[in-house]
Amino acid sequence: MKDKSKEVEVEQKPTVIIETKTANLFYGSFHALKNIDFEAYQNTVTALIGPSGCGKSTFLRLFNRMNDLIDHVNISGKILLNNKNIYDKSIDVDELRKKVGMVFQKPNPFPKSIFENVAYGLRVNGISDSGYIEEKVKTSLQQAALWNEVKDNLKKSAYELSGGQQQRLCIARALAVEPEVLLMDEPASALDPISTSHIEELIFELKKQYTIIIVTHNMQQAGRVSDYTSFFYMGDLIEHGSTKQIFTSPKDVKTQNYITGRFG
């Protein structure tokens, strides 16, 4: 199945959804991201890999401007979503974040019911049609492969779910606002292997509708779920290419060392 999708890529030129041009980011005087040129294509999964502190999570957070919350952050260069610079003054950050959903490392449901967690994004976007909200909650939970487990307990607190279920709830919550891009920051790192495989299957399904960028520490996971892989090291994007190429014939020796487990 994977090979088939690769063939499709070769046949037609993939549409670029997200692009960065000489993106730089400073935390105070610390140069966290250095001159990064990057592309992500429609309906593909791009994995960001690299050792801890290499800047991959920081890079991911560029795309929904989550770094704005941190004091003393300076960003330069171009970060484009559908060819529009998302750091332009005319951009409404709240609107941007509706288009670019995010799933975090640790499941972070709100202390509300399962239903209200998924409905949250709709409610804050001014939707009050309860019929529409109910329908949307249902389809989002179905998309996140959680519906069958929770359909009878939608009023239960989200905290009563298991960690893996909570993470799928967070994915459903992000899907409910119909984003174009889904950012995932090590979404399975806090989960057991079974929950992890659930999430991975889910990512495979979701890429039919969404463009996904995923940060992961887990090489096998990157190999399993992604079409493209970017290797980050010390704030530099060392190598970017199709997952197959990165894993089988990396051009850079650092990439090779990291992938084969010699450091990281």
Partner: peptide, 14 residues
Amino acid sequence: PRSQKEASLALGAS
């Protein structure tokens, strides 16, 4: 927790 705040903001809440 920051994660709660981020979860809300990431969904487009002001």
